[in-house]
């Protein structure tokens, strides 16, 4: 135990008391940080779940429509039709800080209308459905990317902070308190020995001098 390693002096006792006060303050701060991160995480994860459920079901529809289109039309015609994008996604990327964690911040700049770039004569209507549905999903796809990455990073940071909080609460603070207790006892013991020694010396001197 750390108790064995400390030197029982008043200087060490003062140092340990200061360290204990700092540890308690640090623990409170980290605990507050953890609580705030969990609060923000819960908001983000709910939105993340909503978006993912919505996007996953829409993507399955898009894929199903595209499969129908592939069955109805020639592969080369389809490839030619989707070669030129009907909409260009331009996003601005930045970063923001959530409780000192740098998370991505994305913003779609381009909000131009969708222009179907192929002739309708040789392509099936399912392709139009797929493309229009996919186009309407683009904003959500970008939002999902931003939110999911933020959630990933927050979850890792919350786990780290929780470990730190627990280490301070259950290891550092009890160790410091135990050391302080040990030094206090040792100092009191020394003081008692000193008094007894003085009393004994006094008795011996008194006996010698015949008082």
């Amino acid at each position: 135990m750390a108790t064995r390693l400390v030197s029982p002096t008043r200087m060490e006792l003062t140092r340990l008391k200061k360290e204990l006060a700092t540890a308690k303050r640090g623990h409170k701060l980290l605990k507050d940080k953890q609580d705030e991160m969990v609060r923000q995480f819960m908001d983000l994860i709910r939105r993340n779940r909503e978006l993912r459920t919505e996007i996953e079901s829409s993507l399955l529809d898009v894929n199903a429509s595209f499969e129908y289109a592939k069955l109805k039309s020639n592969n080369l015609v389809l490839q030619e039709a989707i070669m030129v994008p009907s909409k260009d996604i331009v996003i601005e990327c930045d970063s923001k800080s959530i409780m000192n964690i740098v998370v991505p911040k994305l913003n779609i700049v381009d909000s131009k209308e969708t222009n179907i770039t192929y002739s309708f004569a040789h392509t099936p209507s399912e392709l139009d459905d797929a493309i229009l549905e996919l186009t309407s999903l683009t904003n959500k796809l970008v939002e999902l990317a931003q939110i999911e990455k933020s959630c990933d990073m927050l979850a890792v940071e919350i786990e780290k902070t929780r470990r730190r909080v627990n280490a301070i609460e259950f290891v550092l603070i009890p160790d410091l308190e135990e050391n302080i207790h040990f030094i206090t006892l040792k100092l009191e013991d020394n003081e008692r020995s000193n008094i007894i020694r003085l009393m004994k010396s006094k008795e011996i001197i008194a006996a010698k001098n015949g008082y």
């Binding site: 592939k70 490839q79 039709a81 989707i82 994008p85 909409k87 996604i89 797929a130 996919l134 683009t138």
Partner: peptide
């Protein structure tokens, strides 16, 4: 089947 995504950039 991923090629459809090319249509939105």
């Amino acid at each position: 089947s991923l090629k459809i995504y090319a249509s939105v950039g």
